[in-house]
């Protein structure tokens, strides 16, 4: 009796949170996505498939999110290895602070920082011109490469942190043993470090993938008009076109997409979601 009382005290806020803030709004959006002007309809979903701009943006967003996640992973692995295994213990805390420092500033400010560096009249162009490398300013903003760089930069920390914690638990002597048995550096990465870090890689990748897929600010500011992101389509439907029904349908398509890709990723790497927390 007493124990079940305690149970309800702790579970109630969680249930309230889930039901009021997540379940009910989504239910409402789901209903909205099937509403037309007056009646139930599948038109909102049909529009998505008949209008190429919609599903092309959708595919583009998915592909770029996957590329960004992979790039972030490739960059974060050596960073995590350096922080955990190579840097001296005293330096380690300092490096972690350096990693987190940019995240004390809001994402908006960080992105504007990049824009100051990269724009036509920006810092980088000023140096290029004064060194005589170019005669006229180069437009470095508003293309896909810059956008992906910005997304990688924004996501880096969320990949490095889980990787640092799994790499910490890797016994140094395993790396030495592999080396002793004749393994090259690449082989040690492939056979020892990456298999050991798999849980961290998977959870970091899920977080980064979700953040990138759902990011609005970075693609909008750094990608410019040519770099369409699916979140912008949703935003446009809700705010610009005031078509809530269409926006809700897009929102659900994005939810289905992210779930499907994560499910596929887990299947391919042979991991299960429940194992990641342990």
């Amino acid at each position: 009796m007493k124990r079940s009382g305690m149970f309800w005290i702790f579970i109630t806020p969680v249930l309230l949170w889930l039901v009021l803030l997540i379940f009910l709004p989504h239910l409402d959006l789901l209903l909205l996505s099937f509403r037309g002007d007056a009646s139930w309809t599948l038109d909102n979903y049909r529009n998505f498939f008949t209008e190429p701009i919609y599903w092309l943006t959708f595919v583009r967003t998915a592909l770029y999110s996957i590329i960004t996640t992979l790039l972030t992973l490739i960059l974060a692995l050596p960073v995590a290895l350096y922080v955990t295994k190579i840097a001296k213990p005293g330096l380690r805390g300092f490096l972690m602070v350096l990693l987190m420092l940019p995240f004390w500033v809001s994402e908006l400010v960080r992105i504007y920082g990049w824009m100051i560096l990269l724009r036509e009249s920006g810092v980088l162009n000023y140096f290029l011109q004064s060194l005589g490398l170019t005669n006229q300013p180069v437009e470095m903003l508003y293309n896909d490469a810059t956008m992906i760089m910005g997304l990688v930069y924004t996501s880096m920390l969320f990949m490095v942190i889980p990787l640092v914690s799994v790499m910490d638990s890797l016994d140094n002597s395993l790396i030495e043993a592999a080396c002793d048995l004749g393994a090259s550096k690449i082989c040690i990465w492939r056979t020892i470090i990456i298999p050991h870090c798999k849980p961290g890689i998977v959870s970091g990748s899920i977080v980064v993938f979700m953040l990138v897929l759902g990011n609005y600010l970075t693609p909008n500011l750094m990608g410019g008009k040519n770099s369409l992101w699916f979140t912008e389509q949703i935003y446009n439907q809700f705010i610009a076109s005031f078509n809530w029904n269409q926006g809700a349908a897009f929102g659900f398509l994005l939810l289905v997409l992210s779930s499907a890709i994560i499910w596929l990723g887990l299947k391919l790497t042979g991991q299960r979601l429940g194992e990641l927390s342990s």
Binding site: D171, C179, S184, P195
Partner: peptide, 20 residues
């Protein structure tokens, strides 16, 4: 000469068997 090129092998204190 690096460890991987030496004709010696080491049995580590905590054995360092690969758990994976």
């Amino acid at each position: 000469i690096t460890p991987d090129k030496r004709p010696v092998n080491l049995v580590f204190q905590h054995l360092a068997l690969f758990p994976m």
